[in-house]
């Protein structure tokens, strides 16, 4: 295991375990995961279905709690926080993109993007908003309701929302899972751009080697444990490693 907790880490976990059920029916969704995500890097998490990818993301994003071990965002350990502190942390420090159903149907695209800041009662940074909106290419669609947007557009709005409040880190759980390859690629390009040019930190779960190829680093999970990792991945190398691990 080559990754270690460093001072520049945007988020990470130490010996994180998540156990569902008890006794015979016990499931170790996470089994002592220690990982850190450096600032301004794009990390992909891969692994077979049921390997604990979503669980790890949820625990890192303060949506769920660990059974043992610790997770942190910046210099805050989440395990010590109360429910309302966690909520504030999610609002101010974290962006999250789900596989689908990311938007509030009654709000326009723009309102969805500014939602976390509105909830905090903060004014969005106008310049940054413009940058984000232009990067996702949604300027003409800002007044539309989610039901008037395509699936790809909806996911882009979701990513824009995750980025809009300039969070410490953005988690995206299979953001391209429901998209065709064209829209998927657009979205990945955009996330890549956000990391390289805007300095964001993004962690993304994916099953698709070519999606993983957009990242700086890939972490492989299996049975709740980290199996391997790869720096500067390409689709072919990822595919090879997956085959290797599958054997």
């Amino acid at each position: 295991m080559s990754s270690s907790v460093t001072q520049t880490a945007a988020a990470g976990s130490i010996e994180a375990s998540k156990i569902y059920g008890e006794g015979d029916t016990e499931i170790r969704a996470l089994d002592g995961v220690t990982v850190s995500f450096e600032q301004s890097r794009f990390t992909a998490i891969m692994g077979p279905s049921g390997s604990g990818k979503s669980t790890l993301m949820h625990c890192l994003a303060g949506l769920d709690r660990l059974s043992a071990g610790r997770v942190f965002i910046g210099d805050t350990y989440l395990d010590d926080l109360s429910e309302s502190q966690l909520t504030e942390l999610r609002r101010d420090k974290i962006g999250f993109v789900f596989q689908a159903f990311n938007l509030i149907p009654t709000l326009s695209a723009e309102e969805n993007i500014t939602l976390p800041m509105d909830l905090a009662g903060r004014k969005p940074n106008k310049e940054w908003m413009d940058t984000v909106i232009d990067t996702v290419g949604l300027r003409t669609r800002l007044d539309h309701r989610p039901s008037e947007l395509s699936g790809g557009q909806q996911q882009r709005v979701a990513v824009a929302r995750a980025l809009a409040s300039q969070p410490q880190i953005v988690f995206a759980d299979e953001p391209t899972g429901n998209l065709d390859s064209r829209s998927g690629t657009d979205l990945l390009d955009f996330m890549r751009h956000a990391v390289s040019d805007l300095g964001q930190t993004i962690v993304m779960v994916t099953h698709d080697p070519s999606a993983a190829a957009h990242s700086d680093r890939v972490i492989f999970l299996a049975d709740g444990k980290i199996r391997d990792e790869m720096i500067e991945p390409t689709a072919d190398r990822v595919l090879d490693l997956m085959k290797q691990l599958g054997d």
Partner: peptide, 16 residues
């Protein structure tokens, strides 16, 4: 339910 969960996920407090 799902929408409310989403609102909570992106940082809406219980009070809100």
């Amino acid at each position: 339910t799902r929408e409310l969960g989403l609102l909570r996920a992106v940082g809406m407090s219980r009070k809100q």
